[in-house]
């Protein structure tokens, strides 16, 4: 049993990280997520990282890689709930965030996946309109 539960809702996997990620646990999470995609045939994955106070370059890379790997297996991935200070730290460090789909929170992450399936353009936060 994984220390980080992966829930299935229809064809979407939901993974909420509420424990501190060390290197080994991050690697384990990656393997578990990919294994669960294979078993369930999920086409979407939302990783909720609102519980993470620290995301260093190694963990960030594993999270970004997991998204790319999931996509190769046919599952769109959204990283949801990154805290402001974590986003600021990663950008200041020069972490390349290109190719990582992100959403403000879990709700928006799930909506973004649903949005993507209906063929809408990426990069807009669903449920909000420009002022």
């Amino acid at each position: 049993m994984s220390p980080i539960p992966i829930l299935r809702i229809g064809t979407t996997l939901l993974c909420s990280v509420h424990v501190e990620l060390d290197d080994a646990l991050a690697e384990r999470l990656q393997e578990d997520v990919l294994g669960t995609i294979e078993r369930t045939g999920a086409t979407g994955l939302v990783v909720d990282i609102s519980g993470l106070e620290t995301v260093d370059s190694y963990v960030a890379r594993i999270l970004a890689d997991t998204g790319r790997m999931a996509r190769l297996m046919g599952a769109d991935t959204v990283l949801a709930g990154m805290r402001p200070e974590v986003a600021a730290t990663l950008v200041r460090m020069g972490f390349p965030l290109e190719g990582v789909r992100a959403a403000l929170d879990l709700d928006h992450g799930l909506a973004l996946l649903a949005h993507g399936r209906s063929g809408a353009t990426e990069g807009r936060r669903p449920g909000r309109t420009a002022p």
């Binding site: 290197d23 106070e53 620290t54 995301v55 260093d56 805290r83 730290t89 460090m93």
Partner: peptide, 27 residues
């Protein structure tokens, strides 16, 4: 690093910076 940063009242951004730098350099 995190607990000391918080104890000295560093804000969330500075605390994240300290904690992340500590993590990178320790690794």
């Amino acid at each position: 690093a995190r607990s000391l940063a918080q104890a000295y009242g560093f804000d969330a951004f500075a605390t994240a910076a300290i904690t992340t730098a500590a993590s990178e350099l320790a690794r």
